[in-house]
Design a protein around this nucleic acid. Sequence first.
DNA 1: GTCTATATGGCGATAGAC
DNA 2: GTCTATCGCCATATAGAC
Lengths: 210, 210
Amino acid sequence: MPPERLLGTVGAIILNSKETILNKAIILFAEKGYSGLSMRQLATAANLSVAAIYHYFPDKNALYLEAIRFAFSGKERIFAQVWEAECSAEEKLARFVHALLDVMTQDHNFHCLMQREIMEANPERMNLLAQGIFKQQFYLLMQLAEELAPEQDSHLVSASIIAIVDSTVKCRPLNKFFPGRKPEHDRTDVIAAHITHLLLNGLTSRGNVQ
Amino acid sequence: MPPERLLGTVGAIILNSKETILNKAIILFAEKGYSGLSMRQLATAANLSVAAIYHYFPDKNALYLEAIRFAFSGKERIFAQVWEAECSAEEKLARFVHALLDVMTQDHNFHCLMQREIMEANPERMNLLAQGIFKQQFYLLMQLAEELAPEQDSHLVSASIIAIVDSTVKCRPLNKFFPGRKPEHDRTDVIAAHITHLLLNGLTSRGNVQ
DNA sequence: GTCTATATGGCGATAGAC
DNA sequence: GTCTATCGCCATATAGAC
Protein backbone atom coordinates (compact mmCIF):
# COMPACT_ATOMS: atom_id res chain seq x y z
CA MET A 1 0.00 0.00 0.00
CA PRO A 2 1.50 3.36 -0.98
CA PRO A 3 2.00 5.95 1.73
CA GLU A 4 -0.94 8.35 1.63
CA ARG A 5 -1.48 11.71 3.23
CA LEU A 6 -4.59 11.74 5.42
CA LEU A 7 -7.05 14.22 3.99
CA GLY A 8 -10.49 13.15 5.13
CA THR A 9 -12.52 10.19 6.31
CA VAL A 10 -16.17 9.17 6.31
CA GLY A 11 -16.54 6.83 9.23
CA ALA A 12 -13.63 4.44 8.83
CA ILE A 13 -13.22 5.00 5.09
CA ILE A 14 -10.11 6.92 4.10
CA LEU A 15 -10.81 9.23 1.19
CA ASN A 16 -8.47 10.19 -1.63
CA SER A 17 -8.11 13.83 -2.65
CA LYS A 18 -10.92 13.96 -5.19
CA GLU A 19 -13.35 12.25 -2.82
CA THR A 20 -12.30 14.57 -0.04
CA ILE A 21 -12.93 17.62 -2.20
CA LEU A 22 -16.37 16.35 -3.28
CA ASN A 23 -17.26 15.40 0.27
CA LYS A 24 -16.41 18.84 1.62
CA ALA A 25 -18.01 20.53 -1.38
CA ILE A 26 -21.36 18.86 -0.69
CA ILE A 27 -21.34 20.05 2.90
CA LEU A 28 -20.24 23.59 2.12
CA PHE A 29 -22.33 24.16 -1.02
CA ALA A 30 -25.37 22.99 0.96
CA GLU A 31 -24.53 25.43 3.71
CA LYS A 32 -23.44 28.49 1.74
CA GLY A 33 -24.73 28.04 -1.78
CA TYR A 34 -22.76 28.26 -5.01
CA SER A 35 -21.58 31.85 -4.84
CA GLY A 36 -21.30 31.76 -1.05
CA LEU A 37 -18.49 29.21 -1.12
CA SER A 38 -15.08 30.23 -2.48
CA MET A 39 -12.45 27.89 -3.85
CA ARG A 40 -10.10 29.14 -1.13
CA GLN A 41 -12.54 28.13 1.61
CA LEU A 42 -13.08 24.74 0.01
CA ALA A 43 -9.34 24.21 -0.37
CA THR A 44 -8.77 25.05 3.29
CA ALA A 45 -11.57 22.72 4.37
CA ALA A 46 -10.16 19.90 2.25
CA ASN A 47 -6.63 20.53 3.52
CA LEU A 48 -5.35 21.19 0.02
CA SER A 49 -4.27 24.15 -2.08
CA VAL A 50 -6.56 25.85 -4.59
CA ALA A 51 -4.34 24.64 -7.42
CA ALA A 52 -4.82 21.03 -6.29
CA ILE A 53 -8.57 21.40 -6.71
CA TYR A 54 -8.06 22.72 -10.22
CA HIS A 55 -6.02 19.62 -10.95
CA TYR A 56 -9.18 17.52 -10.53
CA PHE A 57 -11.85 19.89 -11.82
CA PRO A 58 -11.69 22.27 -14.80
CA ASP A 59 -13.60 25.04 -13.03
CA LYS A 60 -15.92 25.81 -10.13
CA ASN A 61 -19.10 25.02 -12.04
CA ALA A 62 -17.94 21.55 -13.08
CA LEU A 63 -16.98 20.86 -9.49
CA TYR A 64 -20.45 21.93 -8.35
CA LEU A 65 -22.23 19.68 -10.84
CA GLU A 66 -20.10 16.70 -9.87
CA ALA A 67 -20.76 17.38 -6.19
CA ILE A 68 -24.51 17.40 -6.88
CA ARG A 69 -24.34 14.07 -8.69
CA PHE A 70 -22.19 12.64 -5.91
CA ALA A 71 -24.66 13.71 -3.22
CA PHE A 72 -27.67 12.36 -5.07
CA SER A 73 -26.17 8.97 -5.95
CA GLY A 74 -27.62 5.93 -4.26
CA LYS A 75 -30.75 7.57 -2.86
CA GLU A 76 -33.07 5.26 -4.83
CA ARG A 77 -31.92 2.19 -2.91
CA ILE A 78 -33.33 3.55 0.32
CA PHE A 79 -36.89 3.35 -0.97
CA ALA A 80 -36.56 -0.08 -2.59
CA GLN A 81 -37.59 -1.92 0.56
CA VAL A 82 -40.70 0.25 0.89
CA TRP A 83 -41.94 -0.77 -2.54
CA GLU A 84 -40.90 -4.39 -2.16
CA ALA A 85 -42.68 -4.88 1.16
CA GLU A 86 -45.73 -7.12 1.10
CA CYS A 87 -48.35 -5.06 2.87
CA SER A 88 -51.50 -3.01 2.32
CA ALA A 89 -51.44 0.18 0.29
CA GLU A 90 -52.11 2.19 3.44
CA GLU A 91 -49.13 0.61 5.16
CA LYS A 92 -46.98 1.25 2.09
CA LEU A 93 -47.90 4.93 2.24
CA ALA A 94 -47.01 5.04 5.92
CA ARG A 95 -43.62 3.48 5.20
CA PHE A 96 -42.93 5.77 2.25
CA VAL A 97 -43.74 8.88 4.29
CA HIS A 98 -41.50 7.67 7.08
CA ALA A 99 -38.64 6.83 4.71
CA LEU A 100 -38.83 10.17 2.90
CA LEU A 101 -39.02 12.06 6.18
CA ASP A 102 -36.03 10.08 7.42
CA VAL A 103 -33.88 10.77 4.37
CA MET A 104 -34.62 14.47 4.40
CA THR A 105 -34.16 14.86 8.13
CA GLN A 106 -30.98 12.82 8.41
CA ASP A 107 -29.20 13.79 5.21
CA HIS A 108 -29.43 17.48 5.79
CA ASN A 109 -26.94 18.33 3.08
CA PHE A 110 -28.96 16.38 0.54
CA HIS A 111 -32.10 18.27 1.48
CA CYS A 112 -30.37 21.67 1.36
CA LEU A 113 -28.77 21.01 -2.02
CA MET A 114 -32.10 19.83 -3.41
CA GLN A 115 -33.78 22.96 -2.13
CA ARG A 116 -31.21 25.22 -3.70
CA GLU A 117 -31.39 23.36 -6.99
CA ILE A 118 -35.18 23.60 -7.17
CA MET A 119 -35.07 27.29 -6.28
CA GLU A 120 -32.47 27.93 -8.96
CA ALA A 121 -34.83 26.11 -11.38
CA ASN A 122 -32.21 25.70 -14.08
CA PRO A 123 -34.11 23.61 -16.67
CA GLU A 124 -31.12 21.45 -17.58
CA ARG A 125 -30.38 20.56 -13.98
CA MET A 126 -34.09 20.14 -13.20
CA ASN A 127 -34.18 17.51 -15.90
CA LEU A 128 -31.09 15.77 -14.49
CA LEU A 129 -32.73 15.76 -11.06
CA ALA A 130 -36.13 14.57 -12.25
CA GLN A 131 -35.04 11.95 -14.78
CA GLY A 132 -31.86 10.73 -13.14
CA ILE A 133 -32.88 10.59 -9.54
CA PHE A 134 -36.58 10.93 -8.75
CA LYS A 135 -38.51 9.66 -11.76
CA GLN A 136 -38.69 6.02 -10.73
CA GLN A 137 -39.77 6.91 -7.19
CA PHE A 138 -42.42 9.28 -8.49
CA TYR A 139 -43.76 6.63 -10.84
CA LEU A 140 -44.06 4.07 -8.05
CA LEU A 141 -45.70 6.64 -5.80
CA MET A 142 -48.22 7.42 -8.56
CA GLN A 143 -49.13 3.73 -8.76
CA LEU A 144 -49.69 3.71 -5.01
CA ALA A 145 -51.82 6.85 -5.28
CA GLU A 146 -53.88 5.19 -7.99
CA GLU A 147 -54.50 2.25 -5.69
CA LEU A 148 -55.38 4.40 -2.68
CA ALA A 149 -57.49 7.00 -4.44
CA PRO A 150 -58.44 5.87 -7.95
CA GLU A 151 -60.87 8.74 -8.37
CA GLN A 152 -58.19 11.42 -7.75
CA ASP A 153 -55.46 12.77 -10.05
CA SER A 154 -52.48 10.57 -9.19
CA HIS A 155 -49.88 13.09 -10.39
CA LEU A 156 -51.28 15.75 -8.07
CA VAL A 157 -51.68 13.32 -5.20
CA SER A 158 -48.07 12.16 -5.53
CA ALA A 159 -46.82 15.74 -5.76
CA SER A 160 -48.82 16.62 -2.65
CA ILE A 161 -47.43 13.70 -0.65
CA ILE A 162 -43.88 14.73 -1.46
CA ALA A 163 -44.76 18.38 -0.87
CA ILE A 164 -46.14 17.88 2.60
CA VAL A 165 -43.10 15.88 3.73
CA ASP A 166 -40.58 18.18 2.08
CA SER A 167 -41.98 21.38 3.45
CA THR A 168 -42.52 19.93 6.91
CA VAL A 169 -38.80 19.24 7.14
CA LYS A 170 -37.88 22.56 5.61
CA CYS A 171 -40.11 24.67 7.85
CA ARG A 172 -39.16 22.97 11.10
CA PRO A 173 -36.86 25.82 12.23
CA LEU A 174 -39.62 28.34 11.51
CA ASN A 175 -42.40 26.34 13.14
CA LYS A 176 -40.51 26.28 16.41
CA PHE A 177 -41.58 29.89 16.87
CA PHE A 178 -45.29 29.23 16.38
CA PRO A 179 -47.94 28.59 19.06
CA GLY A 180 -48.86 25.02 19.97
CA ARG A 181 -45.33 23.69 19.48
CA LYS A 182 -44.62 20.59 21.57
CA PRO A 183 -41.40 18.63 22.16
CA GLU A 184 -42.74 15.57 20.31
CA HIS A 185 -43.02 17.65 17.13
CA ASP A 186 -39.32 17.01 16.64
CA ARG A 187 -39.77 13.24 16.55
CA THR A 188 -39.81 11.72 13.09
CA ASP A 189 -42.23 8.94 14.02
CA VAL A 190 -44.77 11.42 15.45
CA ILE A 191 -44.61 13.61 12.35
CA ALA A 192 -44.78 10.61 10.02
CA ALA A 193 -47.86 9.27 11.81
CA HIS A 194 -49.56 12.67 11.67
CA ILE A 195 -48.88 13.13 7.95
CA THR A 196 -49.96 9.57 7.11
CA HIS A 197 -53.19 9.97 9.07
CA LEU A 198 -53.90 13.32 7.45
CA LEU A 199 -53.25 11.93 3.99
CA LEU A 200 -55.38 8.85 4.51
CA ASN A 201 -58.31 10.33 6.40
CA GLY A 202 -58.21 14.06 5.86
CA LEU A 203 -59.31 16.63 8.39
CA THR A 204 -62.99 15.95 8.71
CA SER A 205 -63.99 12.82 10.52
CA ARG A 206 -66.12 10.40 8.52
CA GLY A 207 -69.77 11.38 8.72
CA ASN A 208 -69.52 15.14 8.56
CA VAL A 209 -67.71 15.37 5.22
CA GLN A 210 -69.19 18.21 3.26
CA MET B 1 -43.31 69.75 -7.32
CA PRO B 2 -39.50 69.58 -7.49
CA PRO B 3 -37.91 68.23 -10.65
CA GLU B 4 -37.06 64.59 -10.07
CA ARG B 5 -34.93 62.18 -11.99
CA LEU B 6 -36.86 59.13 -13.06
CA LEU B 7 -35.35 56.06 -11.41
CA GLY B 8 -38.08 53.47 -11.22
CA THR B 9 -41.82 52.96 -11.19
CA VAL B 10 -44.22 50.35 -9.88
CA GLY B 11 -47.28 50.62 -12.07
CA ALA B 12 -48.02 54.34 -12.16
CA ILE B 13 -46.19 55.12 -8.90
CA ILE B 14 -42.94 57.02 -9.29
CA LEU B 15 -40.37 55.84 -6.77
CA ASN B 16 -37.70 57.90 -5.03
CA SER B 17 -34.14 56.62 -4.85
CA LYS B 18 -34.46 54.67 -1.62
CA GLU B 19 -37.65 52.97 -2.77
CA THR B 20 -36.07 52.18 -6.11
CA ILE B 21 -33.07 50.58 -4.43
CA LEU B 22 -35.28 48.47 -2.14
CA ASN B 23 -37.54 47.50 -5.01
CA LYS B 24 -34.65 46.29 -7.15
CA ALA B 25 -32.96 44.67 -4.14
CA ILE B 26 -36.01 42.51 -3.46
CA ILE B 27 -36.08 41.25 -7.02
CA LEU B 28 -32.36 40.63 -7.26
CA PHE B 29 -31.79 39.16 -3.79
CA ALA B 30 -34.69 36.77 -4.48
CA GLU B 31 -33.07 35.78 -7.75
CA LYS B 32 -29.40 35.58 -6.80
CA GLY B 33 -29.27 35.36 -3.03
CA TYR B 34 -27.27 37.54 -0.65
CA SER B 35 -23.75 36.74 -1.82
CA GLY B 36 -24.86 36.34 -5.43
CA LEU B 37 -25.84 40.00 -5.76
CA SER B 38 -23.11 42.65 -5.69
CA MET B 39 -23.60 46.29 -4.80
CA ARG B 40 -22.32 47.18 -8.27
CA GLN B 41 -25.01 45.07 -9.94
CA LEU B 42 -27.68 46.55 -7.70
CA ALA B 43 -26.46 50.08 -8.40
CA THR B 44 -26.59 49.46 -12.14
CA ALA B 45 -30.10 47.98 -11.88
CA ALA B 46 -31.26 50.97 -9.83
CA ASN B 47 -29.63 53.44 -12.21
CA LEU B 48 -27.48 54.89 -9.45
CA SER B 49 -23.85 54.76 -8.34
CA VAL B 50 -22.63 52.45 -5.60
CA ALA B 51 -21.88 55.46 -3.42
CA ALA B 52 -25.50 56.59 -3.70
CA ILE B 53 -26.65 53.29 -2.20
CA TYR B 54 -24.24 53.76 0.70
CA HIS B 55 -25.82 57.14 1.28
CA TYR B 56 -29.08 55.38 2.24
CA PHE B 57 -27.79 52.19 3.85
CA PRO B 58 -24.78 51.75 6.16
CA ASP B 59 -23.76 48.42 4.59
CA LYS B 60 -24.95 45.52 2.47
CA ASN B 61 -26.40 43.56 5.38
CA ALA B 62 -28.56 46.44 6.60
CA LEU B 63 -29.83 46.92 3.06
CA TYR B 64 -30.71 43.23 2.88
CA LEU B 65 -32.64 43.28 6.15
CA GLU B 66 -34.59 46.37 5.11
CA ALA B 67 -35.39 44.75 1.76
CA ILE B 68 -36.75 41.68 3.57
CA ARG B 69 -38.97 43.82 5.79
CA PHE B 70 -40.12 45.82 2.77
CA ALA B 71 -41.05 42.68 0.82
CA PHE B 72 -42.94 41.17 3.73
CA SER B 73 -44.92 44.26 4.67
CA GLY B 74 -48.64 44.21 4.07
CA LYS B 75 -49.00 40.49 3.46
CA GLU B 76 -51.35 40.04 6.43
CA ARG B 77 -54.05 42.17 4.84
CA ILE B 78 -54.50 39.71 2.01
CA PHE B 79 -55.80 37.02 4.34
CA ALA B 80 -58.08 39.30 6.36
CA GLN B 81 -61.05 38.76 4.07
CA VAL B 82 -60.62 34.99 4.34
CA TRP B 83 -60.98 35.07 8.09
CA GLU B 84 -63.74 37.68 8.08
CA ALA B 85 -65.93 35.79 5.60
CA GLU B 86 -69.14 34.33 7.00
CA CYS B 87 -69.04 30.74 5.78
CA SER B 88 -68.46 27.17 6.89
CA ALA B 89 -65.11 26.00 8.20
CA GLU B 90 -64.64 23.87 5.09
CA GLU B 91 -65.24 26.87 2.85
CA LYS B 92 -62.83 28.94 4.95
CA LEU B 93 -60.15 26.32 4.43
CA ALA B 94 -60.77 26.36 0.69
CA ARG B 95 -60.45 30.13 0.62
CA PHE B 96 -57.30 30.13 2.75
CA VAL B 97 -55.62 27.54 0.53
CA HIS B 98 -56.54 29.52 -2.56
CA ALA B 99 -55.31 32.80 -1.07
CA LEU B 100 -52.00 31.32 0.08
CA LEU B 101 -51.47 29.63 -3.26
CA ASP B 102 -52.25 32.92 -4.97
CA VAL B 103 -49.81 34.97 -2.91
CA MET B 104 -46.99 32.50 -3.35
CA THR B 105 -47.60 32.01 -7.05
CA GLN B 106 -48.04 35.66 -7.93
CA ASP B 107 -45.48 37.27 -5.67
CA HIS B 108 -42.63 35.13 -6.81
CA ASN B 109 -40.01 37.34 -5.17
CA PHE B 110 -41.75 37.06 -1.83
CA HIS B 111 -41.77 33.28 -2.07
CA CYS B 112 -38.10 33.10 -3.10
CA LEU B 113 -36.96 35.42 -0.32
CA MET B 114 -38.98 33.43 2.21
CA GLN B 115 -37.41 30.21 0.97
CA ARG B 116 -33.89 31.58 1.25
CA GLU B 117 -34.56 32.94 4.72
CA ILE B 118 -35.93 29.63 5.99
CA MET B 119 -33.00 27.75 4.46
CA GLU B 120 -30.54 30.13 6.08
CA ALA B 121 -32.37 29.46 9.38
CA ASN B 122 -30.77 32.38 11.19
CA PRO B 123 -32.59 32.29 14.55
CA GLU B 124 -32.88 36.05 14.87
CA ARG B 125 -34.41 36.45 11.42
CA MET B 126 -36.58 33.35 11.90
CA ASN B 127 -38.04 35.07 14.91
CA LEU B 128 -38.63 38.29 12.97
CA LEU B 129 -40.38 36.29 10.26
CA ALA B 130 -42.48 34.19 12.63
CA GLN B 131 -43.46 36.87 15.12
CA GLY B 132 -43.65 39.86 12.85
CA ILE B 133 -45.32 38.41 9.82
CA PHE B 134 -46.85 34.95 10.13
CA LYS B 135 -47.82 34.49 13.77
CA GLN B 136 -51.32 35.96 13.52
CA GLN B 137 -52.11 33.95 10.41
CA PHE B 138 -50.84 30.77 12.00
CA TYR B 139 -52.96 31.37 15.07
CA LEU B 140 -56.12 31.88 13.02
CA LEU B 141 -55.31 28.80 10.96
CA MET B 142 -54.89 26.78 14.16
CA GLN B 143 -58.35 27.86 15.29
CA LEU B 144 -59.76 26.72 11.97
CA ALA B 145 -57.91 23.40 12.30
CA GLU B 146 -59.39 22.96 15.77
CA GLU B 147 -62.86 23.47 14.33
CA LEU B 148 -62.33 21.10 11.41
CA ALA B 149 -60.46 18.35 13.23
CA PRO B 150 -60.80 18.75 17.00
CA GLU B 151 -59.23 15.33 17.62
CA GLN B 152 -55.99 16.18 15.74
CA ASP B 153 -52.98 18.26 16.80
CA SER B 154 -53.83 21.71 15.49
CA HIS B 155 -50.21 22.89 15.35
CA LEU B 156 -49.26 19.98 13.13
CA VAL B 157 -52.38 20.32 11.02
CA SER B 158 -51.71 24.02 10.43
CA ALA B 159 -48.07 23.36 9.62
CA SER B 160 -49.13 20.67 7.16
CA ILE B 161 -51.62 22.92 5.41
CA ILE B 162 -48.97 25.58 4.89
CA ALA B 163 -46.42 22.93 3.95
CA ILE B 164 -48.49 21.37 1.22
CA VAL B 165 -49.24 24.73 -0.41
CA ASP B 166 -45.71 26.05 -0.04
CA SER B 167 -43.99 23.02 -1.47
CA THR B 168 -46.51 22.64 -4.28
CA VAL B 169 -45.58 26.10 -5.52
CA LYS B 170 -41.88 25.52 -4.97
CA CYS B 171 -41.74 22.17 -6.76
CA ARG B 172 -43.76 23.23 -9.77
CA PRO B 173 -40.70 23.57 -12.05
CA LEU B 174 -39.53 20.10 -11.00
CA ASN B 175 -42.93 18.43 -11.31
CA LYS B 176 -43.16 19.48 -14.93
CA PHE B 177 -40.69 16.70 -15.70
CA PHE B 178 -42.70 13.96 -13.99
CA PRO B 179 -45.20 11.54 -15.57
CA GLY B 180 -48.89 12.35 -15.50
CA ARG B 181 -48.36 16.08 -15.87
CA LYS B 182 -51.32 17.86 -17.48
CA PRO B 183 -51.79 21.45 -18.65
CA GLU B 184 -54.41 22.16 -15.98
CA HIS B 185 -51.79 21.48 -13.28
CA ASP B 186 -50.59 25.02 -13.86
CA ARG B 187 -53.98 26.52 -12.94
CA THR B 188 -54.22 27.88 -9.42
CA ASP B 189 -57.90 27.01 -9.05
CA VAL B 190 -57.32 23.37 -10.05
CA ILE B 191 -54.44 22.99 -7.61
CA ALA B 192 -56.36 24.75 -4.85
CA ALA B 193 -59.36 22.47 -5.33
CA HIS B 194 -57.16 19.37 -5.28
CA ILE B 195 -55.35 20.42 -2.12
CA THR B 196 -58.56 21.39 -0.35
CA HIS B 197 -60.23 18.10 -1.27
CA LEU B 198 -57.17 16.13 -0.14
CA LEU B 199 -57.03 17.99 3.16
CA LEU B 200 -60.73 17.60 3.88
CA ASN B 201 -61.28 14.04 2.73
CA GLY B 202 -57.90 12.37 2.52
CA LEU B 203 -56.98 9.70 0.03
CA THR B 204 -59.23 6.84 1.00
CA SER B 205 -62.88 7.20 0.21
CA ARG B 206 -65.17 6.92 3.20
CA GLY B 207 -65.91 3.29 3.97
CA ASN B 208 -62.57 1.68 3.34
CA VAL B 209 -60.59 3.73 5.84
CA GLN B 210 -58.21 1.40 7.61
C1' DG C 1 -0.18 15.18 -7.56
C1' DT C 2 0.75 19.06 -4.91
C1' DC C 3 2.86 23.20 -4.07
C1' DT C 4 4.09 28.61 -4.19
C1' DA C 5 3.54 32.58 -6.69
C1' DT C 6 0.98 35.41 -9.45
C1' DA C 7 -2.26 37.36 -13.07
C1' DT C 8 -6.56 39.65 -13.61
C1' DG C 9 -10.67 41.28 -12.19
C1' DG C 10 -14.76 42.04 -9.05
C1' DC C 11 -15.89 42.79 -4.33
C1' DG C 12 -17.51 45.98 -0.24
C1' DA C 13 -16.73 50.26 1.28
C1' DT C 14 -14.93 55.24 1.52
C1' DA C 15 -13.09 60.11 0.29
C1' DG C 16 -14.08 64.15 -1.36
C1' DA C 17 -15.87 67.18 -5.31
C1' DC C 18 -20.16 69.21 -6.88
C1' DG D 1 -28.08 63.53 -2.94
C1' DT D 2 -25.18 61.94 -6.39
C1' DC D 3 -21.04 61.50 -8.61
C1' DT D 4 -15.94 59.83 -9.93
C1' DA D 5 -11.99 57.86 -8.22
C1' DT D 6 -9.83 54.87 -5.41
C1' DC D 7 -8.51 51.71 -1.41
C1' DG D 8 -7.47 47.06 0.12
C1' DC D 9 -9.07 42.64 -0.17
C1' DC D 10 -10.60 38.36 -1.99
C1' DA D 11 -12.38 35.99 -6.00
C1' DT D 12 -11.36 32.50 -9.93
C1' DA D 13 -7.97 30.65 -12.42
C1' DT D 14 -3.12 29.66 -14.23
C1' DA D 15 2.16 29.01 -14.60
C1' DG D 16 5.73 26.49 -13.49
C1' DA D 17 8.82 24.24 -9.83
C1' DC D 18 9.23 19.90 -7.35
